[in-house]
Design a protein around this nucleic acid. Structure first.
Lengths: 207, 207
DNA sequence: GGACACGCTAAGCGCTTGCTCACTTTCGGC
DNA sequence: GCCGAAAGTGAGCAAGCGCTTAGCGTGTCC
């Protein structure tokens, strides 16, 4: 039998902030199950089983199944935002910063595909208030990318027809990596990150 | 009360091949429900209710709930493939044909977002054999786009580093429109189609 | 060393699910 | 006007769902 930590691999380290240990194991098990089958097709018995616990144990650490998704979604979106902010605020030209944003954002979606899938595709399964909170984080992600593109236009580095639409397309392209990326496929996360950074620089008309 | 046909609008016309009438109404109701809540969160009672029928009526026309998804998925993928083929086989340069593929494919994803969502995002809810059949249609879609990009490279119209990766990115960009497009948002399907055609031509390095 | 809080389990409650079945209604052919 | 097939209904079954509760073992405090 494989434990949750083994199959999730390096992704597990991202959940260090979740304590105690049993709560973290349950959360990692939930990420896996939600990514594989989707939120609604996953049972609380399945989550508890993957974490090596009885079904009732889940409710000691989480009020409901939805709270698990909410926690996963918040931590995941915070990580995504941090990635985009770090790249946006480094030194360098807008071209370099945008390329950095895309390559690191894509690497996260490809390498942590299990987590990214849940974060990006299970938003609609949240209740209205939780969903509103997460949507605010998404708007911040959008703003981080848009700011770099606007910088590039202002500096004369980029040639963009529609900044808002292009920002959306860039984020959309990166996010969809979580849908199609396959660990056993022909590319590593690094390779996809580099390929996508090149494609995005072409989209913004870098000279 | 609004009927299935009213809320789906023009999309309904795409299901003309489904007969008899009651079977078509059920299928359209299922498309709506799956798009709104996802396959697993949709109940057969909900589908039948939207079609104005009793829960048992569904099983006169379909063996299982999964058969509904299978039929929707097959018809939808066939339509997607037809769109890409039509654009690929028209007269014109590779540049014109690729722009046509992207703008019409995006228009379909934006305008028929309800259907496209189900087609593109509920694949994993199918059983193994049905899924295999649908994946074959997806590979054909990929081949149609790749052929046009290869034509453009051979003709010296495009400048592409990685044909396979770029093909995947182009399709990925178009497909993700179904996730974010909002009918009440700032763009019409035509506008997004035009914007995306421009972005894709930049991605392939059109001169 | 007795009391107690804590983490966890076994059992199961109330409800919903996908699906079935006995039965009624509708309707074209003769 | 009768008949059989097709289409649809109301009631309900077995299974599985999210979640609760009563009780057990363990370690910590004084």
């Amino acid at each position: 039998m494989t434990t949750a930590e083994e199959t999730t691999g390096g992704e597990a380290s991202a959940w260090g902030e979740v304590t105690p240990d049993a709560a973290r194991r349950l959360l990692i098990a939930a990420v896996e199950a939600f990514a594989e089958r989707g939120y609604h097709a996953t049972t609380t018995r399945d989550i508890a089983g993957r974490a090596g616990m009885s079904p009732a144990a889940l409710y000691i650490h989480y009020k409901t199944k939805e709270e698990l998704l909410h926690r996963i979604s918040r931590i995941g979106h915070a990580k995504a935002l941090e990635i985009l902010q770090t790249a946006a605020r480094r030194e360098g030209t807008a071209t370099e910063r945008l390329a950095d944003q895309v390559s690191s954002f894509v690497r996260w979606h490809a390498g942590g595909r299990t987590t990214a899938r849940v974060v990006q595709y299970e938003l609609d399964s949240l209740g209205p208030e939780a969903r509103k909170e997460i949507l605010a984080l998404r708007r911040q992600c959008d703003a981080e990318v848009r700011a770099v593109i606007e910088d590039g236009v202002a500096a004369g580095e980029f040639d963009v027809l529609d900044v808002k639409g292009t920002t959306l397309a860039v984020l959309s392209l990166c996010i969809d990596v979580a849908r199609w990326f396959n660990v056993e496929g022909p590319w590593t996360p690094d390779e996809v990150g580099a390929l996508y950074a090149d494609l995005v620089l072409r989209m913004v008309g870098v000279k």
